[in-house]
Structure formats: structure tokens, C-alpha cells
């Protein structure tokens, strides 16, 4: 059974038709990747799932929760956590405070403490910089803070929007390793990427999204070999 089910979702920004009957599934424990160019509707999809934009028609359900009507804070509290494009670190707050904010919906302080310890353990770079302002970190470190912030929230489904954006290839590799590790510990992942090569290495399945609709889908291995994907997204 799928954890996340999106069916025929239509999203409009004014007159712009951003998602056109978009459908896809994410199964429990999977890493699923949405591939596509700028403006294909990937971020809109993410924003729809976290309740920031509402579809005009269609459905999006996650473990029985109707994401098209649920309040954004209830979605987060239920473990669907969205790491937005551009990381959106709170720039004048410290790394530690950024991570604490990730646990905003977690009532039990002890649980927050345990998760913080785990984040600092898996990303020791953040432990070194815990008193530093978020805005002073490098892009890769900021991405780690963004992912760490989500982990403190206790994600069951993690939405990651362009985590590799603007990062050096070596750092992209590190970030992808962190994502794979989070997944290995039981968190389902929906990954949006333009960097198809990096994403397909860790994803189980993928969908290609063009102008707001799915045009291709399959396992990561299948898509990595598909000539249409190779030509459009992997560069021959």
C-alpha cells in the first residue's frame, strides 16, 4: 500500500495552470524522485503536499490524512516534513536554534534532545558550528542544517526540494549519502531534483514531470537507462 497518493491534482496560480492532473505514489520506506526542469511543477507539488498551496481539484492523501484540507502545522506534527528549495535557514539564528525550531511541534523535550544528539552525531560539522549564525554557513552546511531541522521534527515522510542546488559535486555526494542514511533508518523520502544523476543513484523509483504532469515513470535503474531521460536530464 502506498503511503502517499496523489491523484489528478490540478493547481493554478491565478491563470497559470501549474499542475495538470498530476498523479504519483510513494510507498512506505521508498526514496522516490521527481525529475524535471525549472517550472515543471516540482516545487508546486511539494508546496501542495505541505499545505502551502491548495489544489483546485484532485486528491492528495498520506496515511489517511487528506493533505488538501489539513492545516499545515498538523501536517508537520504528523511527520510529513518539507525541506524547501533554497534551504530557507533562519539566517540570524544559531545552528542550534534552527535545529530546535525543527522540533517545534514535538511536545516532549526529551525526544527533541535525543534527536538533536543524533543530528550532531551524524553531522559532526553542525556540532562544531552549533553557536554560529545559520547565514554564515556554507551552502552544504546550510543544507545539512535544513535536513537536520527536519530530522528533529521526527519525519515519517521527508520532502526534499532540490537539496543539491548550488553545491559542489563532492558536497552533493555527501548530502545524498545523508539522505540515503535517513531513509535507511526508516523515513520515506520524496526527492525533487534537477540533478538527475545524483538523485537516481539513491532513489528506488522516479517520475519525470513536464509542464505539471507525469510523462514517464519507472524504477531508478530503468529511468537511468531510458534514452529520453538520458538525453534530457543526464546529458549523453
Amino acid at each position: 500500500m502506498s503511503a502517499l497518493e496523489v491523484r489528478d491534482a490540478d493547481v493554478y496560480y491565478g491563470r497559470v495552470h501549474a499542475l495538470r492532473r498530476l498523479s504519483f505514489d510513494v510507498g512506505e520506506g521508498e526514496i522516490v524522485c521527481l525529475l524535471g526542469n525549472n517550472g515543471a511543477g516540482k516545487s508546486t507539488t511539494m508546496n501542495m503536499l505541505s499545505g502551502l498551496v491548495r489544489p483546485r481539484s484532485g486528491s492528495a492523501t498520506w496515511n489517511g490524512m487528506d493533505l488538501t484540507t489539513a492545516k499545515p502545522w498538523n501536517i508537520v506534527a504528523d511527520g510529513l516534513i518539507h525541506v524547501p528549495e533554497g534551504r530557507r535557514i533562519f539566517s540570524t539564528m544559531t545552528v542550534h536554534e534552527n535545529l530546535l525550531l525543527g522540533g517545534y511541534t514535538v511536545r516532549d523535550k526529551r525526544v527533541v534532545g535525543e534527536r538533536l544528539d543524533r543530528v550532531y552525531e551524524t553531522m559532526p560539522r553542525l556540532a562544531e558550528r552549533r553557536r554560529q549564525q545559520g547565514g554564515t554557513l556554507s551552502g552544504g552546511e546550510q543544507q545539512m542544517v535544513a535536513i537536520g531541522r527536519a530530522i528533529v521534527g521526527g519525519p515519517r515522510l521527508l520532502l526534499l526540494d532540490e537539496p543539491s542546488m548550488g553545491l559542489a559535486p563532492l558536497v552533493v555526494k555527501q548530502v545524498m549519502e545523508i539522505i540515503a542514511a535517513v531513509n535507511a533508518q526508516g523515513t520515506t523520502v520524496l526527492l525533487v531534483e534537477q540533478n538527475a544523476r545524483a538523485a537516481l543513484k539513491i532513489a528506488h523509483r522516479a517520475y519525470v514531470v513536464e509542464t505539471g504532469a507525469v510523462t514517464l515513470s519507472g524504477t531508478a535503474a530503468e529511468l537511468a537507462r531510458d534514452p529520453r531521460v538520458v538525453e534530457a536530464y543526464l546529458g549523453a
Binding site: L52, P72, I75, R88, G153
Partner: peptide, 10 residues
């Protein structure tokens, strides 16, 4: 600092 990011924190 960033109302939308704050909303994403729940």
C-alpha cells in the same frame, strides 16, 4: 525572518 519557512516548521 521567514514566515513561510516558519510555517514549514509547523
Amino acid at each position: 525572518l521567514d514566515p513561510q519557512a516558519a510555517q514549514l516548521m509547523g
